[in-house]
Simulated assay, not measured.
Amino acid sequence: MYEPIRSKSVHSMAGESDFPHRTREEELDIQLAGHLAALLAVTHELGLDTEAERIAGQITRLRGTAPLRHAGLGGADPAALHRRALALAGRALVVAASRADTAAAILAAERMDAHTAALHGTQLVGAP
């Protein structure tokens, strides 16, 4: 009654088996490194060199190469930079937690605490 399908599905892409697929872990590594790289740029802008080195170390661990450094300062409002850094650290924390990366999660949580304290005008012990 029904005739069997004789051709490939129109939904499959030609050469699909040649397409390089990444694992979920690799995708999360790329995402986490991206959030940390953005956080690194904001951290440099704030002049927090010690913290920037810690973030750069995590990026190097994830990517296998040292991150490029942001050379210029934009002169943005420090409060706006702290809010941006807080959001970026939060994103990094979510990804680090989903990939069970304790070191990156701790770093992101510490940065969130430090930027929250900076926004509220308080100083954390051990924070710049």
Rank of each mutant, 00 (worst) to 15 (best):
R6V: 04
R6D: 12
S7Q: 05
K8Q: 03
K8P: 09
S9Q: 05
H11G: 07
S12Y: 09
M13F: 09
M13E: 10
G15Y: 12
D18C: 10
D18R: 13
F19T: 09
P20T: 07
R24W: 13
R24F: 07
E26S: 11
E26W: 08
L28Y: 10
L28A: 11
L28C: 02
D29M: 11
Q31G: 03
A33R: 00
A33M: 04
G34E: 05
H35M: 06
H35N: 08
A37W: 11
A38V: 03
L39V: 08
L40P: 08
V42D: 08
V42S: 14
V42E: 07
E45F: 01
E45P: 10
L46K: 07
L48Y: 06
L48F: 13
L48V: 09
D49E: 09
T50C: 13
T50R: 13
E51R: 15
A52D: 06
E53V: 14
R54G: 00
R54F: 00
I55H: 06
Q58N: 06
I59Q: 02
L62G: 00
G64S: 00
P67G: 01
R69D: 13
A71V: 11
A71S: 12
A71W: 06
L73T: 12
G74C: 04
G74N: 10
G75T: 05
A76Y: 14
A76M: 11
D77K: 04
D77Q: 07
P78T: 12
P78V: 09
P78A: 07
A79C: 03
R84G: 06
R84K: 11
A87N: 14
L88R: 07
G90Q: 02
R91S: 15
R91E: 14
L93M: 07
L93K: 13
L93S: 02
V94A: 11
D101R: 03
D101S: 08
D101E: 04
A103V: 05
A104P: 00
A104V: 00
A108D: 03
A108G: 06
R111W: 01
D113C: 12
D113P: 03
A114S: 12
A114Q: 15
A114R: 13
H115I: 10
A117L: 03
A117W: 14
A118T: 06
G121E: 02
G121H: 00
G121F: 01
T122M: 04
T122R: 15
L124W: 10
G126E: 06
